[in-house]
Design a protein around this nucleic acid. Structure first.
Length: 906
RNA sequence: GGGCGUUUAGCUCAGCUGGUUUAGAGCAUCUGCCCUACAAGCAGAGGGUCCGCGGUUCGAAUCCGUGAACGCCCACCA
């Protein structure tokens, strides 16, 4: 993988001059913790005695049993950048960490582990099971938070919370009771998404639909009335097409569209469910789409949402033929039909599908089987096909919440980055459905609803009168039974920004008043409905305010082929391993480099490599500067020019980074710093001020350079916290406890500094100079002239001494042109370098002619505009002036090229 | 079936309300270099019909229309 081909073999290398991140990183993280630098308290004041502005971020709590993956690296790095930058700006930054109990995922893991120990969940009481779950949480919980430290995350660890700790649980229960009191929570028998693996209801958002290649089975339903046949075919049966033949045991009717001509003969008749023998009526409803399938729809109210609706409309009974784990339950089928169906009892649903089709085929009741693509819903967590199932669940009415949560996003009180997610958000809220909040799980917040034991035994759960249910934060006196269900995990997550500051239980307390609304939320767009939207709802409902001001949606981290990272593909690198190899700073830079908000990242190790290389570059710049001998002498003119120029570069870059950060264009901000450091500082500035071998540098120049360095470290610190802290302390002696993280109080007025070169004339001069240097270097490269060999540069005008220094040449103004020269043009000036060798006249001429053609083409374009009356009449004056300048410059360049060509020919 | 988004160099992307020397960056590629900070480096070079078509305009990568390809979200066609 490593391309060492052109690298020097290791053994030949001099002593290593590479930056070693591992030692540095662990040392500084420990220092930060020891000095409590991440901790925040309300009403903190700065050195000037002013109250600091709060800047709050709450972490999207990772699953308590989770381990760090690349998605976390991206997400947490972005949060850390925002938080660290806020600290440098003098804000009181508070990043609150924590974990999520993730009820369904964690319960699954616990069950799996118990199974490995030979224990079945069903053998345990609720209390026993919860004991195991808590053990697991204590054991594995928080591993991920430790891993975040390796990444450099500056969370306020003293505030670490858990969605099921005491404060958070209290908030959840309180909110449930409150919403129940407000009439927004109700209990009802509804068709829900049932996960047969975990045996719990799921919300609509937890179902993921996949396109699937399946079969369309055409089944024959014999007409019960004797002698009635299809006039078109003579058949004495109706044909019903279905993708789920195993549900025919629950068929209650066959529905046709009253307008569909070809099925008119079935009106008012009855048919026999094939293989089952149940006689069911033909009903009519316009819901059935004309022209689709056979126009005959089997109605199975217990196992399909639409059929359920039809069942309600026509008052049909329901026969639920599945057990909770999606095996066939024939006990619900009528006694007189048992002989036909008993053999299917206890079969798994897909096995039964095969079997029933086989059996019906044997009976000649299958007309045909076609290939068919349809969508099947899968459980987000267990990845098992969900089963629509009628069950008693708790729901939250959502219209009210949609009404309060939509406007603030649409009018940008809460700003989404990127803004396109506003549409997604709007769409969901405008088609909101009630939220199924109960789960048939034990690991989670138990629903605070109580049933009178005596009454319950009398009525059973389904018929228990709703008005007799007691919803209360504490168990009522007397003989009551608590609801067995737990709440959807998101029913606690949606309170997170409030409950972290105990704002539900103690509204208006000091913490919530200070830290809330939080500043930025960083999360993936995949949980915009699950989490973001619902936090906004809870925020307005319980504080009257938005929960956060900005939402930054990250992309998905993919491999470089664009595939999602997954364990099975083995394309997901272990972040800790990457940190080991490239350093946390390197990994942070790598993951951020190609990550504009909302864009997927095609991750490749080479990105981290670039990050590591950059660290090394910074490290070596520092070594070079620090190693210079200093002397108390006047700085030469070249130093002063270099310092002035770089001051301007730095100020411009600071402004640019500031601007980009305000727009949350983090990768571009980092790139701006990267270019400032590698190109301008290291490539140009250091070469400009580097003293001759063995000579010292002027103290003044040295001090300025160190100042530049420190300012660049500050710019870079949010992105690369470790190396910047290390070098901050290496620049000069610092007091114990000092840190780069403190507010920037350096005397540095970038506006005033930039004003010194308001029209940019000086910067232009240096840019011109850089091009001249490049021109000379180019000639050296083309003619194989060693950088050590001194040359003469013939210039039309005097040039700064910097040119001599950077090109190792003597500049002569004007002067005679010898026969053998190489030339180049910068702007409209022609420069020449006399050569001690013959030049390839043909090659030179060809190049010049190509350039000439290009310039002439350019000129034609410009002149076409200037000769166009309409252009002259419509275009703005500045534009016309610009075109005139272009014309003038092009003429000059053409003249120079022609003169040179003439000299070459003559 | 609706909605949204994307399409610019080999790759990943900038290019804001049309005009800034006939399109920029980083990476990758090629050539030449171990010169006393850095070969995890330095210097230089090459590379684009701005998805197609039509329109608006003096002027379009940029605005409008249309077609295509890809991606995402939502939706109960069995």
């Amino acid at each position: 993988m490593e391309d060492n081909a052109k690298n020097k073999p290791l053994e030949e290398k001099k002593e290593s001059t590479n930056y070693n991140p591992q030692e540095v990183e662990s040392r500084w993280y420990q220092y930060w913790i020891e000095h409590n630098l991440f901790h925040s308290e309300p009403d903190d004041v700065n050195d000037r005695g002013e109250l600091k502005e709060p800047f709050t971020v709450v972490i999207p709590p990772p699953n308590v049993t989770g381990v760090l993956h690349m998605g976390h690296v991206l997400n947490e790095t972005i949060q850390d950048i925002l938080v660290r930058r806020a600290r440098l700006e003098g804000k009181n930054a508070c990043w609150v960490p924590g974990t999520d109990h993730a009820s369904i995922a964690t319960e699954a893991k616990v069950i799996k582990r118990l199974k490995e120990q030979g224990i079945n969940k069903s053998d345990l009481t609720r209390e026993q099971f919860l004991k195991h779950a808590w053990d697991w949480t204590d054991e594995h919980g928080g591993i991920i938070l430790k891993q975040l430290r390796k990444l450099g995350c500056s969370c306020d660890w003293e505030r670490t919370a858990f969605t099921m700790d005491e404060t958070r649980s209290k908030a959840v229960i309180k909110v449930f009771c409150d919403l129940y009191k407000k009439g927004l929570i109700y209990k009802g028998l509804r068709m829900v998404n049932w996960d047969p693996e975990r045996q719990t209801a799921l919300s609509d958002e937890e179902v993921i639909y996949h396109e699937e290649h399946s079969k369309f089975y055409y089944l024959r339903y014999k007409v019960a009335e004797a002698g009635v046949t299809n006039p078109a075919t003579g058949a004495d049966y109706a044909v019903v097409a279905t993708t789920r033949p195993e549900t025919i045991f629950g068929d209650i009717a066959v529905c046709i569209n009253p307008k569909e001509e070809k099925n008119q003969w079935l009106r008012g008749k009855h048919v026999i469910v094939p293989g089952v023998g149940r006689e069911i009526p033909i009903i009519e409803d316009r819901y059935v789409e004309i022209g689709f399938g056979t126009g005959c729809l089997k109605v199975t109210p217990a196992h399909d949402v639409n059929d359920y609706a039809l069942g309600q409309k026509y008052d049909l009974k329901t026969i639920d033929i599945f057990t909770a784990d999606a095996h066939l339950n024939m006990d619900t089928v009528e006694e007189e039909l048992q002989a036909n169906v008993r053999k299917y009892h206890g079969m798994e649903r897909f096995e039964c599908r095969k079997q029933i089709v086989e059996d019906l085929q044997a009976m000649g009741l299958v007309e045909k089987v076609e290939d068919y693509d349809n969508k099947v819903g899968y459980s987000e967590r267990t990845n098992v096909p969900i089963e629509p199932r009628l069950s008693l669940q708790w729901f939250l009415k959502m219209q009210h919440f949609a009404d309060i949560a939509l406007p603030p996003v649409m009018n940008d009180e809460i700003v989404f980055y990127p803004a396109k997610y506003k549409n997604t958000y709007k769409n969901w809220l405008e088609n909101i459905k009630d939220w199924c909040i109960s789960r048939q799980l034990w690991w989670g917040h138990r629903i605070p609803a109580y049933y009178d034991r005596a009454l319950l035994e009398q009525t059973g759960l389904e018929d228990y009168p709703t008005d007799k249910i007691i919803v209360s934060e504490t168990a009522p006196e007397g003989d009551y039974v608590q609801d067995e269900g737990a709440l959807d995990t998101w029913f606690s997550s949606w309170l997170w920004p409030i409950s972290l500051f105990d704002g539900i239980d103690k509204p208006g307390n000091k913490e919530i008043s200070y830290y809330y609304p939080t500043s930025d939320l960083v999360t993936g767009p995949d949980i915009i409905f699950f989490w973001v939207a619902r936090m906004i709802m809870a925020g307005y409902e319980y504080t009257g305010k938005m929960p956060f001001k900005h939402v930054y949606f990250t992309g998905i981290v993919r491999d470089k082929l664009g595939r999602k990272m997954s364990k099975s593909l083995g394309n997901s690198p272990d972040p800790l391993d990457l940190i080991e190899r490239y350093g946390a700073d390197g990994v942070r830079m790598g993951i951020l480099l190609s990550a504009p908000a909302g864009n997927d990242i095609l991750y490749d190790d080479s990105l981290c490599e670039q990050g590591r290389n950059f660290c090394n570059k910074i490290w070596n710049c520092f070594r070079m500067l620090k190693g210079l001998q200093r002397a108390d002498v006047d700085a030469p003119m070249t130093d002063r020019e270099a310092v002035t120029w770089f001051t301007l570069c730095l100020c411009k870059a600071e402004k640019e980074v500031d601007d980009l950060m305000k727009k949350y264009r983090l990768s571009e901000a980092l790139m701006a710093v990267y270019k400032l450091f590698t190109d301008e500082f290291s490539g140009w500035y250091l070469e400009m001020i580097k003293p001759a071998y063995g000579s010292p540098i002027a103290q003044k120049t040295y001090d300025c350079s160190m100042l530049f360095f420190e300012r660049m470290l500050r710019l870079l610190h949010p992105f690369m916290p470790f190396i910047t802290e290390e070098l901050y302390h290496s620049l000069r002696e610092r007091e114990d406890g000092d840190t780069i993280m403190r507010e920037d109080t350096m005397e540095w007025d970038s506006e005033a500094l930039l004003a010194q070169d308001k029209d940019g004339a000086f910067q232009q001069e240096i840019e011109h100079l850089k091009q001249v240097v490049a021109g000379v270097r180019n000639i050296r490269a083309q003619h194989n002239i060693s950088p050590r060999e001194e040359m003469t540069l013939l210039s039309p005008a005097p040039l700064s001494e910097l040119v001599n220094k950077l090109t190792h040449s003597k500049v002569e103004v004007g002067g005679e042109r010898p026969a053998m020269v190489a030339t180049f043009i910068v702007g409209t000036d022609e420069y020449a370098v006399p050569l001690n060798q013959f030049i390839d006249v043909e090659a030179e001429r060809k190049k010049l002619e190509a350039d000439l053609a290009h310039q002439q083409g350019f000129l034609r374009g410009v002149e076409a505009k200037l000769n166009n009356e309409k252009f002259m009449a419509h275009a703005k004056a500045e534009v016309i002036d610009m075109e005139r300048k272009k014309q003038h410059d092009a003429h000059e360049r053409i003249a120079a090229i022609e003169a040179r060509l003439k000299a070459l020919n003559g």
